[in-house]
Nucleic acid binder design. Structure first.
Lengths: 176, 176
DNA sequence: ACTTTTTGGTTGCGTTTCGCAACCAATCGT
DNA sequence: ACGATTGGTTGCGAAACGCAACCAAAAAGT
C-alpha cells in the first residue's frame, strides 16, 4: 500500500499510515493488544493469507512496533510482542473502535466493550481536550506550523503577517 | 482495499477500516478537516490520481461521511462537506497524528501543531480515561462482550463462569 | 537413528487495485 | 458561438493481494 506517494508528505498522519495504514496491519495490532503473540495465532484469528502476514509482521518489526523472539519448542516458535511504540497505538485504535461503534454498528450493538477493571464501567469516549482538560470542539482549535514545518506548511498554516488571516481556517467547519 | 474478508468481522475497528481504511481516504478527510471542499482542491493538495479520488469521494458520500452539493458556477462545481459522522473522525485522526508526531517525526519535529484557539496552547495528548476522567493504562482495562457480541466474541471474551479466568487478558501486555 | 509433527515461512499464479495519462461531457463566462 | 473550467471516465501497465501448494528447521515420539 505504499508505491510512491504520500509517505513523504509533511504530515504525521500520512507517515503513520505509511507504517500502520496498510490492509490488515491494524487488525494484527488488535490481536496483539488482545494478547496474541504467535504467527499461527494471528493467522487463525484473522484469516489473513500467510505471505501477507509474513510481510506485515516483518514490517512491524522493522519499524519497531513489534519485537520478534525465537523460543525453544517444536519448530522454534516466534513470539511477536508489542513495543512501547506499538502499545502507544492503543488510543488511536480505541478512537477508531468508538467511531465504528457509534456510526456503523450503533452503540447499542457494539461487539465489545472496553471496561475499567477497577469499576467495571465502560471507558470514556476519547475526546480532544485542551491542556487543562477542557473538552474542545473543532471550532475551538487551529492548525499552526509545528517545529518541523517546511515551507509548504508555513505557506498554508502560517500566521499571514502580511495582511489578513489564513485563507482557510483549519477545523472551522463551515456549514453554508 | 476490501475484496472479501474482514468487513464482516464482529469488530468495530474492522468495520471502520472498511469505510475509512483504504489508501488515501484518511488523507482526503484531512483535507476536508482543513477546509477543502472541491474535487480540484483535493486532487491538487494530495496528488492522488483522479479516478481514485472519484472512487473515494463516491464511497465517502455513500457511507454518509461527506455530502456532495452542486453549486452554480463554471462547470457546476461540487462541494464536498463533512457530515457529523465525518467530523467525528477527528479524535481518531488526531490520535494518529500524535502517534506519528511522537514515534516517527519526533515531537520536536512535528510538521503541524493543533492549538486551542482560546489560549494558543497545544492541545493535550489523547488518552484513554475512565468515565470519571481518571487516565487508564492498558493494564487497567479489560475487553468484555458488548451488547452486539456474537457467539465467537462471547467465547473469546466472555466471563468464563465455568471455571477459571479468560485465557488471555486483553490489554494486559505481558513482558516475559 | 529415524520418522513425524509443529512452526513459520516461501513460491507461483490468477485476480484486484492502484497510478498515470489521455479523453470527454456539461456548464458558464465572454 | 467559443473556449475555459470543473469533474469526471477510460484504458492500460505495474503493483499489491489472496489462495494453495510446497519447503526447511527443529523438537518429540518411538
Amino acid at each position: 500500500m505504499q508505491t510512491p506517494p504520500f509517505e513523504d508528505q509533511p504530515c504525521s498522519v500520512a507517515q503513520a499510515l505509511g507504517e500502520i495504514g496498510e490492509r490488515w496491519t491494524l487488525l494484527i495490532l488488535r490481536e496483539a493488544f488482545f494478547g496474541m503473540q504467535r504467527f499461527t495465532d494471528f493467522q487463525a484469528r484473522l484469516g489473513v493469507a500467510r505471505n501477507i502476514l509474513t510481510a506485515r509482521l516483518n514490517k512491524l518489526v522493522a519499524t519497531g512496533i513489534l519485537t520478534r523472539n525465537v523460543a525453544p519448542g517444536r519448530g522454534n516458535p516466534r513470539f511477536y510482542r508489542l513495543t512501547e511504540k506499538g502499545r502507544d497505538v492503543l488510543p488511536a485504535f480505541i478512537a477508531l473502535m468508538q467511531w465504528g461503534d457509534r456510526w456503523i454498528a450503533g452503540e447499542a450493538k457494539a461487539p465489545v466493550r472496553v471496561v475499567d477493571t477497577a469499576t467495571g464501567e465502560e471507558i470514556a469516549r476519547l475526546r480532544v481536550c485542551a491542556r487543562d482538560g477542557r473538552p474542545l470542539v473543532a471550532r475551538e482549535m487551529r492548525v499552526v506550523p509545528g517545529p518541523g514545518a517546511d515551507v509548504s506548511i508555513h505557506r498554508r498554516f502560517g500566521a499571514t503577517a502580511s495582511g489578513g488571516e489564513a485563507p482557510e481556517a483549519a477545523f472551522a467547519f463551515r456549514r453554508g
